[in-house]
Nucleic acid binder design. Structure first.
Lengths: 137, 137
DNA sequence: TTCAATGCAAATTTTTTGCAAAGTC
DNA sequence: GACTTTGCAAAAAATTTGCATTGAA
């Protein structure tokens, strides 16, 4: 693997352990990929890229691993784009900007949101999730 | 139609005109539905409900009309839920809260976000869109 | 009669599910 | 040997596309 990072690798192992899963090579590869690639990849991008070096990988395993990581709050599932989920290994609070033209997704630090003068911000959506008052009990 | 509102009907006609579309009965029905139902309906819910009183309606027309309304900023497409888009006729700034248990989506006024004490907020996602610095020119 | 809008069906895309084979403890 | 994990294939769900028919100006 290009530019292999022991740090990221160690973190990938930790996330998989946090999910209560066994560290299989496939799961490590998926976790490593999401941590190493800050491009907010889709399932298909993750699958295709890993598959290039690990041909036996199945999409089912990618889906399963990502779901487990999301449910354990180890990574974030982005739904900013209609149709597909994207994934983000950065879990500290930050916002996302999606360009309507080039479709790229930028990470925006929260304190910088009010002064996004270089961007032309057309739409702001704040999504909260958790438990509503009825379901809290 | 139950509780038919001339006000909403007039607004539906206006939105369709704003899109540069002709006010066909199907388009009016779709726009009316989204304005009248503040439940953040999916395409399928919109289609099924209107179809009950207007059997000839096709899902293609629902998709086409919704896309036009979204592109003209007449309604908002919510992507808070993985897998499907939901639609919101309220375009003034407000946030959405999705309960992880009952899956309902609540409208939250922006000034109320900091004191959402009745809710158990686990996750906050801020999505911005528009044009990035590269594409602005 | 011309052009826009509709509706159906098929195709695409994304995600989920069932299950047998392979791997791990 | 029991149990987990994987990968394939099929199914399900959401959306888009092609095209013939309908309808309005």
């Amino acid at each position: 693997m290009y530019n292999y990072s022991p740090d990221i690798s160690a973190k990938a192992l930790r996330l998989i352990a946090d999910c209560g899963l066994r560290p299989s090579p496939q799961r490590i590869a998926v976790a490593y990929y999401v941590l190493a690639n800050r491009t907010h990849p889709t399932v298909d991008e993750i699958y295709t890229d890993i598959k290039a070096t690990c041909p036996s990988l199945s999409k089912t395993t990618v889906y399963n691993t990502l779901r487990a990581l999301v449910e354990s709050n180890c990574i974030i599932e982005l739904t900013i784009e209609p149709g597909t989920s994207r994934f983000d290994g950065t879990t500290s609070p930050h916002a996302h900007f999606r360009c309507n033209s080039c479709k790229r997704i930028f990470d925006i630090d929260m304190p910088h949101i009010p002064k996004l003068s270089d961007f032309d911000v057309g739409n702001v959506q704040v999504y909260l999730s958790g438990l509503c008052p009825c379901c809290k009990n």
